[in-house]
Amino acid sequence: MRRDRNRLGPKPLRRALLAVLLPVTGLFPALAEEAPLPSADALFERYVEATGGRAAYEAVRNAVTEATMEMPAQGIAMKVTIWVARPNLSYARTESDVTGRIEKGTDGTVVWEKSVMTGPRVLEGQEREDYLRESAPDKFLRWRDYYESGEVTGVEDVAGRPCWVLVLTPRGGKPQTVYVDRESGLISKVAMTLDTKMGSVPVETWLEDYREFEGIKSALRARTKVVGQERVLTVTSIRRNVEIPPDRFALPAEIQALVAKRGAPPAAPAE
């Protein structure tokens, strides 16, 4: 079977990237068992088209996603709000009575985390790169900027449905596996290992119940299995091109103090 990992088109249309929290949908029509494996570019291109098209993506300057995060077995629920804006800004806030507030974000250069429990922290190394990649608002259109390669390796079932297995190798990080529903083209599952300062954390996420939010389809629900516990993220709204306060992506004072203490910030990510 053909494994076309190098067939890259120059068109930005072909440059799409997937996400864990905000996946979009729509790939090929059903392919026959014996059909050759598609290229990663081809998968992403169809993916973008089926979920709203390149024009819809390119029209997005920013987005605000609201969701609930539940740990059903433990009876814990959290409110999650994520702001993203071009070119590479993001800020996520998780709040609950159980855990207090947890914030994470980037101004495009410094990646940081501030939890009422653990305090402020500047992320570095692979942990920083992973966050920049996973939170990049334009990643669907520029996947090659974040991954060295993408290879479709075969077909596997996820929840009883055949899926293309797409192995993406990030720049400097561990490979992650994306399962794309062969019939619907939707991303059904993402499996990756995140390198954090605490250690390597295997994460599996199942993406379910795709809905259209302001012209782009996203999974309404993401079920994540991490260190043996299940978390369910349910999106309640996605608003695009809204007014976002100019300081939304500014570094909190404690992070600024940590950055100042460490000296110059790390280099900006590759454009």
């Binding site: 653990t118 305090g119 402020p120 922290r121 300062k197 605490m198 250690g199 390597s200 954390v201 295997p202 260190v227 043996g228 404690e254 103090a257 940590l258 203490k261």
Partner: peptide, 16 residues
């Protein structure tokens, strides 16, 4: 020490 991995209880120094 978990079955799948090991996680360090890291200490993140405060600014002061």
């Amino acid at each position: 020490k978990l079955r799948e991995t090991e996680l360090k209880a890291i200490v993140s120094p405060r600014p002061e």
